[in-house]
Nucleic acid binder design. Structure first.
Length: 883
RNA sequence: GGGCGGAUAGCUCAGUGGGAGAGCAUCGGCCUUACAAGCCGAGGGUCGCAGGUUCAAAUCCUGUUCCGCCUACCA
């Protein structure tokens, strides 16, 4: 291996590709099945084949990769199951757009050819997002990559459909569905986006058939009037009780329709009279059923008025609205128009206004499935993090309606149902039947509808593992360990996986669900192309490197809060990556890279004992944070330790020995410094796989990939409480001196002499042993340590615990300044002191507060008064000189 | 309409009952042989507002304002 010294700055581009290739070539992402090791499995939320990597993917997959790499280093048998989703409508739209650019549409090419084109498109572009995931460093087991429409998964889909049908949980029927006139398909309720819209409420007069007068109804969609088959009023409504059995005349079409009574009608809304269009409104449909009303469909699948719309036939629904309003106005039947805000449904894919339409569709009866899915979370079989999402989950499960699973598009799993052309008998089967089972006729045609994309996604946690076959993968990894996903697909996906998993596997699909936030821009807005505020993860990786990017995402991923991403923040973490790189450089410059020297017995100095003890503590804290999905805490702990403890204190102190003349100390240090660096790299690896691997490979004491190194744990290190205490003293003294130097603007080039006044002999010993560190770190020339020495003239004093450090500043000390500084410090402590004393003089505090809290305050008062005494003493010293 | 989340330093955010923290930005001093993408130091906040509970509240409760999101069959 090359042993050159590292370049001055870290260059991510040079190393990222190299190491990803290395990991793949060495099969380091491969999961064993079966295996003796503890299993850990995550199924990836399959990205759309049409997609390219956006910030949401980047966050989602970074978090999964952190968990997978962490668990692997913990010794688990990790399977990160990858794959892609065929994304029915989305993908079909993309290919249709492509066709449109060539002046064609899907009807021109025909179904078979069109599906072929989509497959071709998928061959060509489907790998794009996979490569982008690799770029991000994702350690998926690519040998197990799946696609929702591959042979195995399609078999699982048919199996599930047929079984549900046979169990009576899938049925076909006439219902009002959400129809997208642009995509030409039904949509599930979830796929409709409601948007608050400024619209109008139109008051229309329906003349009474007998006698004078009219009934006024209020509606937002006057064009549906053409399909009205009744007007409903509330039976309790005094205004309309006399209309029992009456008819009104439907305007425009001039035909009588009945007045019906239904409790659904809200007396307080509009006029309390509701026009009923059973074929174009979900509620009206229900009311229509109750009263056995005719269903008249007046709007067709293109959103145009059909032949039943009389004079309006052929008009677009919105043009029809204008015309009908105009006509009503002409005949004096339009009473008034009020401005009105309501939520209008739009297609989640193409944003076209949804038309509720009567249609024959396939449904999954979800009641019992949802109940079981709900219970599993209540029983704690699946835990949702953060827990507040549980409420949202229950809420949805409790109010769930049957799931419309048929779609009138061409790209997807074609529903395995066949109709007899002779007798119409319906056959649902895994394989095409040869002939009709009732009339024996061989003329069977398959259902043209395909399944909702989420139908196959719902099977993902077990279909990818080989179901319906009983595979080793399934036995080893189901139920999976955790599902990591954004809350935007909690209902679309998570809820349905729960239902299907429990029903078909008899167990929940995952033990944990971790729900992360959405990535937004700096202002907290959702990133979208139309707003022009998208940050492209690929560009970020180009500019800052993947490790910095990943670390940023992890550091910002606090539970329950959105991730507001800014380039500044990423830049900050690039600096951190560079810091690590340079720390490694320092270590390298002092290593015997040829490996000729054998280190003898280790000599542990205070900084060594301290840093190793801290490593143990930090390892434990990082582990706990990751186990609890507190990614930001884990990242923060690494950052703080590596930069401010390892680099700022430990390495600075290690230089003493590394640059010194004592050969035994030097060799020991080389060993320890390398050990500490290795441990730090291991802690960082889940977050920053590339830079850690690069440095790891260059260290003489390492072997193989850092991916398979053991994650640090407390038992790897000494736990030396004394070292922590002693380092506190040492750092306190150094900080005290630096503090004064800083405030007095004494440049580092100007060395000072100090006198340390310390009563405790043990403390004196520690400081004496580490005198050299004080000298280097605080730029001190001479140190003298004694007990009860008088304050030297022309000195500034730092007080720390029971220690006083007098800094001799002959010719440098500005008396006024020092007096001001002391005065400021005294004032601050007096304030703290007063607060504490007030507490202690409060009888209730003394009797009611826990004893240890009271003792804590007493201890504070003791420390404060000690320090205050010393500070005042020093101030008086100057005042006397002043006199 | 229902629900959820947020409001803490100039900015982005941690902090869930015992003396307010970090990063960035700002100011001052340093090219100290790993790193100026750096080092050392400093300043900066009645924790949205009003009540309440408590010996003690950024933290718990109630109300309120503003912002964001989810959800819904008042046409």
């Amino acid at each position: 291996m090359e042993m050159e010294i590292l370049t001055k700055g870290y260059e991510p581009k040079d190393v990222e590709n190299k190491w990803y290739q290395y990991w793949e070539e060495n099969n380091l992402f491969f999961a064993e099945a079966p295996s003796e090791k503890r299993p850990y499995c995550i199924v990836i939320p399959p990205p759309n084949v049409t997609g390219t990597l956006h910030m949401g993917h980047a966050l989602n997959n970074t978090l999964q990769d952190i968990l997978c790499r962490f668990r692997r280093m913990k010794g688990d048998n990790v399977l990160w199951q990858p794959g892609t989703d065929h994304a029915g409508i989305a993908t079909q739209n993309v290919v249709e757009k492509d066709l449109a650019s060539k002046g064609m549409d899907r009807y021109a090419v025909g179904r078979e050819k069109f599906v072929e084109l989509v497959w071709e498109w998928r061959e060509k572009y489907g790998g794009l997002i996979i490569n982008q995931l690799k770029r991000l460093g994702c350690s998926c087991d690519w040998s197990r990559e799946r696609f929702t429409m591959d042979e195995g998964l399609s078999r699982a889909v048919r199996e599930v459909f047929v079984r549900l049908y046979e169990e009576g949980l899938i049925y076909r029927g006439d219902y009002i569905i959400n129809w997208c006139p642009r995509c030409h398909t039904a949509l599930a309720d979830l796929e409709v986006e409601h948007e608050e819209t400024e619209s109008s409420l139109y008051y229309i007069r329906y003349p009474l058939e007998k006698g004078e007068g009219h009934l006024v109804v209020a509606t937002t969609r006057p064009e549906t009037l053409l399909g009205d088959t009744a007007v409903a009023v509330n039976p309790e409504d005094e205004r309309y009780k006399h209309l029992s059995g009456a008819n009104v005349i439907l305007p425009v079409l001039n035909k009588p329709i009945p007045v019906v009574f239904d409790r659904y009608v809200d007396v307080a809304f509009g006029t309390g009279a509701l026009k009923i269009t059973p074929a174009h409104d979900a509620n009206d449909f229900e009311i229509g059923n109750t009263h056995q009303l005719q269903r008249i469909k007046v709007i067709d699948e293109d959103g145009r008025m059909n032949e039943l719309a009389g004079p309006y036939q052929g008009l677009d629904r919105f043009d029809c609205r204008e015309k009908i309003l105009n006509d009503l106005d002409q005949t004096g039947l339009l009473e008034k128009i009020e401005p009105f805000r309501n939520a209008v449904g739009h297609c989640y894919r193409c944003k076209t206004v949804i038309e509720p339409l009567l249609s024959k569709q396939w449904f999954v009866k979800v009641g019992s499935l949802a109940e079981a899915a709900s219970r599993s979370v209540k029983d704690g079989k699946t835990r949702i993090y953060p827990a507040n999402w549980e409420g949202v989950y229950f809420e949805w499960m409790n109010n769930i309606r049957d799931w419309c699973v048929s779609r009138q598009i061409w790209w997807g799993h074609r529903i395995p149902a066949w109709y007899c052309t002779q007798c119409g008998e319906v056959h649902v089967a895994k394989e095409p039947p040869q002939h009709c089972r009732t009339c024996q006729d061989p003329g069977l045609v398959q259902e043209t509808d395909v399944l909702d994309t989420w139908f196959s996604s719902a099977l993902w946690p077990f279909s990818t593992l080989g179901w319906p076959d009983s595979t080793n993968e399934l036995k080893t990894f189901y139920p999976t360990s955790v599902l990591v996903t954004g809350f935007d697909i909690l209902f679309f996906w998570v809820a349905r996986m729960m239902m299907m998993g429990i029903h078909f596997m008899g167990d929940v699909p995952f033990k944990d669900v971790y729900i992360h936030a959405l990535v937004r821009d700096v202002e907290g807005k959702k990133m979208s192309k139309s707003k022009g505020n998208v940050i492209d993860p690929l560009e970020v990786m180009d500019e800052f490197g993947t490790d910095a990017f990943r670390f940023t995402l992890a550091a910002l991923a606090a539970q329950g809060r959105d991730v507001k991403l800014s380039e500044e923040r990423i830049l900050g973490y690039r600096h951190f990556v560079n810091k690590i790189w340079n720390a490694a450089r320092l270590v390298f410059m002092n290593l015997d890279l040829e490996g000729n020297e054998r280190a003898g017995e280790r000599i542990y100095t205070l900084p060594d004992r301290w840093v190793l003890t801290r490593l143990g503590q930090v390892s434990e804290e990082v582990t706990r944070a990751l186990e609890e999905y507190r990614f930001n805490d884990a990242a923060g702990l690494c950052y703080q330790f590596v930069w401010h403890e390892f680099c700022d204190w430990y390495l600075e102190m290690a230089k003493q020995g590394l640059y010194g003349n004592d050969k035994a100390v030097k060799e020991s240090l080389r060993d320890i410094v390398q050990e500490v660096l290795m441990a730090a790299l291991k802690l960082l690896h889940p977050f920053m796989p590339f830079v850690t691997e690069e440095i790891w490979h260059r260290l003489p004491a390492t072997e193989g990939s850092i991916m398979v190194a053991k994650f640090p744990e407390p038992s790897d290190f000494m736990g030396d409480e004394d070292a922590l205490r002693e380092m506190d003293l040492l750092m306190g003294v150094v900080t005290g001196i630096r503090n004064i130097r800083g405030e007095m603007n004494i440049p580092p080039s100007k060395k000072v002499n100090i006198v340390i006044d310390v009563a405790d002999e043990d403390v004196a010993v520690v400081l004496r042993q580490n005198m050299a560190h004080i000298q280097t770190l605080a730029k001190v020339e001479q140190v003298s340590i004694a007990s009860g020495v008088p304050k030297p003239e022309a000195s500034a004093t730092a007080v720390f615990g029971q220690i006083q450090v007098h800094i001799l500043l002959k010719g440098l000390l500005d008396f006024e300044e020092e007096m001001k500084r002391l005065g400021k410090e005294i004032k601050k402590i007096e304030k703290d002191m007063e607060l504490s004393q007030r507490k202690l003089s409060n009888e209730e505090f003394l009797t009611r507060a826990p004893a240890e809290i009271v003792e804590e305050v007493r201890e504070k008062v003791r420390i404060f008064s000690l320090k205050l005494g010393k500070l005042t003493q020093n101030l008086r010293f100057f005042e006397e000189i002043d006199d």
